[in-house]
Computed example of a mutant assay.
Amino acid sequence: MKKKVMKHIPNFITSLNLFVGCIAVYLGFQGNYGWAFFFILLAAVFDFLDGFAARLLKAYSAIGKELDSLADVVSFGLAPGAMAFSVLQQTELHYILPFAAFLIPVFSALRLAKFNVDERQTTSFLGLPVPANAIFWGGAIYTFYDFFVFQPWVLCALILLFCALLVSEIPMFSLKMSGFSWKKYKTQYIFILGCVALLVSLWDNAFAPIIAWYIFYSVLIYIIYPKKAPTK
């Protein structure tokens, strides 16, 4: 009985990801960007914990994999899309332009579908992971809301850029670590040190720069060590 209950824990945590993601969507459409971003971050915590729980309890399932992707489409696709839509509605081009924001959930879904069938992405990623994309948008809109309202074309250009990054073949490293070896996980440690520096200097405005740092560092590593990229 206990074993049967334990195997459902990862799916329960994934369901929490979906639940708080729905709240983020609602708040995003309402223009409550601070709280919408908070719930996106909370969804990211649950997204990490469900995988951790599945590995710890050895409770893997086909349903869990599908549920995880469906939850991520909402929490990390539709939620940031709702935030961007709300911002674009407040611009002088509010009749047509806001619908460009829905490219974020569309390309997030494409990214997740691609990830699910791509056997190369076991220890690293090809393209920007959807949680990182969502954190960028949540942080960018929270920090640069006023700028985006007066410069909507910059926001639209960023939407196109990040949609391209989601489905790109650019290798990006994973933060998953199975130990504390500096030699083995030097990439992750250097990235974390950069994140700490950004958090200390920018505090709650650091999230979008942290994702920009992640993208830049991933591309830099690929340029220096192209052989480390996942291959078929």
Rank of each mutant, 00 (worst) to 15 (best):
H8E: 12
N11W: 14
F12W: 05
T14C: 15
T14E: 15
L16S: 14
L16D: 08
V20L: 09
V20W: 12
C22R: 05
C22N: 04
I23M: 07
I23E: 02
V25W: 03
L27Y: 01
F29Y: 03
N32C: 00
A44K: 12
V45E: 12
L49N: 09
D50V: 03
D50A: 06
D50Y: 04
A53H: 02
L56N: 04
L57C: 03
Y60G: 12
G64N: 13
D68E: 05
A71N: 08
V73R: 11
V74S: 02
V74A: 04
S75A: 11
F76A: 09
F76H: 12
L78H: 00
P80H: 09
P80R: 10
P80F: 06
A84D: 01
S86Q: 03
V87L: 01
V87A: 02
L88Q: 02
Q89D: 06
E92S: 14
L93A: 07
Y95G: 03
Y95H: 06
L97R: 09
A101N: 07
L103P: 11
L103N: 13
S108N: 05
A109P: 03
L110K: 14
L110G: 13
V117I: 15
D118P: 14
D118C: 15
R120E: 12
T122N: 14
T123L: 14
L126Q: 09
L128Q: 06
N133R: 00
N133Y: 01
I135E: 03
Y142W: 02
F148D: 07
F148E: 06
P152G: 12
P152H: 10
A157V: 06
A157H: 05
L158G: 07
I159E: 09
L160R: 04
L160M: 11
L160G: 00
L161T: 07
F162C: 07
L165R: 00
L166R: 00
V167F: 02
I170L: 11
M172R: 14
S174N: 02
L175K: 07
F180V: 09
W182M: 15
K184H: 14
Q188N: 15
V200H: 09
S201F: 13
L202F: 12
W203M: 13
D204H: 10
N205I: 00
A208D: 07
I210Q: 10
W213H: 06
I215N: 10
Y222K: 02
I223R: 15
I224A: 08
T231F: 13
T231V: 14
